[in-house]
Nucleic acid binder design. Structure first.
Lengths: 195, 195, 195, 195
DNA sequence: TATGAATGAGATTTCATTCAT
DNA sequence: GATGAATGAAATCTCATTCAT
């Protein structure tokens, strides 16, 4: 079946995640990706048009994956608070492994086309929306204070999670899965519940 | 005197900020920096050992600058809230122009030595500390609730500011100086004041 | 029977004529030829040893074809003059479509083996000979002046036809079949008929 | 003075003439040209943007050179006949060394831009014009018959010279400078003088 | 000190050809 | 016999860095 081609693509993307993740776009070498995928260098070009193409496909793959993880993470909590904690934890375990890299590599570089930049922005907005929706549900259920600015609140949550991980992992040297964001979330919730 | 040498260094670093800012580390070309500084390409090497060296010196320059701006921004407020708003605004105007680039370029790349990475981490911790101190002062003065986890709170503040700018600038297309973080800060403060 | 094999060869050579014609030897890709022949890329290698081999076989095919066309073109005229005009026209219609390409590609390139170069030279000499024979017949029949240097005359005829087509097609933008070589031939004949 | 840069360009173009001449565009390697010019490979790129660029500049150089040679060759004869013989000889000595190669490489290839193709056509037309002018002068002076079609005559002359060299050099194995085109020219002139 | 010129090391990409089914 | 898949070898071009003036 056609699965073999798809299988190979996956295999190359896996390798790419490793190498791009470690080196960033420019320092990553196609040869190394091929090695990691245990195929010949030129075989990569049978599946992807160029280094840039491979990179962008990888980003798409990761984004898609992340998005689905987020959705299922949110299903794991009942209350608004639980959902967000679950989201935070998920962000820690799964994402830290590569999403950030992707964001970083992308931010200021023409390595990636405008097209994919927009696409990524779309994913980011989707996530933002999902979280904002969770908050709205929290308001409806009375868990959160009615008057809050949900947009601002969402920014606080997303930003805090990022920063929280950064502080605990980079400064304190914890592994993402060991980071504890509960105190931070509690503090945020105190505000969201209103005085 | 040595001032002329120092002057030239500054000149080159200025140019470097422009080019590295626009292109990122790898796509920036020494030749372009030299052009922008209006000197010959090889002259750059009279002042800096290598591209990496120039890059790191530039980072140091920016970090130092940023740090001082933060200090003076904090002096501009009386209450804890004012100080943090001032800090946020400062982050917006000044930093957005290049700090982020620097962080991005640095995050996942061996372009920069471990040494400078640690140095940067040091700067980051200093900023973190300053903000945490502001919060502690706020607690002492009774502006903020006594029992709060100041570390978590600092993460929330720093993270939220970043995210807030990202959302308003990238998604909404505002210019950094036009972003309004006050609603967000208010929300955070509600939590910090305790229930 | 072996006819099917022969059929396939022909089919591939047809495709090769198209692609080599459009792109020249080096820029032509086996893959494209295979596409044009509507077969798999590696199938080409079942019929030809290599790109070079395919190219040479194609040249042979064309040369053979051309030679036969020339022979029959010459039969279409009675007088020496008619024969040569017919030859010229034939050169225009048929050959211009690919012979020139072949000559070009061959001229300064080790893409083709010495062997085929000699072979091609052989064809060229055959054509030369045929034309010279036509002239000799013309002399015998009294149509042409007795004393002329038939070798020089043949060069003039062949060269003029080439140049004539070049000028009219490339500079004037005519299609080969619309080029009119009669005035030129008349002028040549005036010389060949002697003063 | 700036002559050093110009000098180097010349030096590289000389080498390019050798290598492109021997191998043709595609098989020629920049490295080999650099070797022949006794400089580093990348130095070539300090003077020319790309292989194609170098090739085209070389062509321009040759064309210019050729054109000037033709002009001075024509000055060496008094009668129309002498001028053309001189032209023919010049074509033999000088041109055969590379012009043809250039033409060949150019003919069917996107190796060269449309721009240069047009430029070359321009040179070709200039030469054509010059020869046609010579003929017209011949008519005016009574050396040639008044009624002849000078355009056709020019085609005959240019084509014959080419073919004449081809036959004598390739088939007979003569060196260009030993080829004798006089009989051929005489034959042509017989026609041009009219009966 | 300042710099134009030179270059070596390396990276991406192409494609003819082989292999395995 | 036919072919999709895989690849190795090669070639262009880039650029940080050094050299010589």
């Amino acid at each position: 079946m056609a699965g073999i081609r798809e299988e190979r693509r996956r295999q190359i993307i896996q390798a790419a995640m490793g190498v791009f993740g470690r080196k960033g776009f420019h320092r990553a070498k196609i040869g190394e990706i091929a090695n990691e995928a245990e195929i010949g260098k030129s075989t990569v070009y049978e599946y992807f048009d160029s280094k840039k193409d491979l990179f962008e496909e990888m980003i798409r793959f990761i984004a898609q994956d992340y998005y689905e993880d987020v959705r299922s993470a949110l299903d794991k909590g009942d209350t608004c608070r639980d959902k967000l904690l679950s989201f935070a934890r998920n962000h820690g375990t799964f994402i830290k492994s590569h999403m950030e890299l992707a964001e970083n590599t992308m931010s200021n570089s023409n390595s990636v086309s405008e097209e994919i930049k927009k696409e990524m922005l779309g994913w980011k907005m989707k996530i933002f929306q999902i979280i904002e929706d969770v908050l709205k549900t929290g308001i409806d259920s009375g868990e959160l204070c009615a008057g809050i600015d949900t947009r601002a609140a969402t920014s606080i949550i997303l930003g805090s999670i990022n920063e929280g991980y950064a502080v605990q992992c980079i400064i304190d040297g914890k592994r993402p899965e060991d980071a504890d964001l509960e105190p931070m979330m509690d503090l945020i919730f105190t505000g969201l519940k209103g005085q």
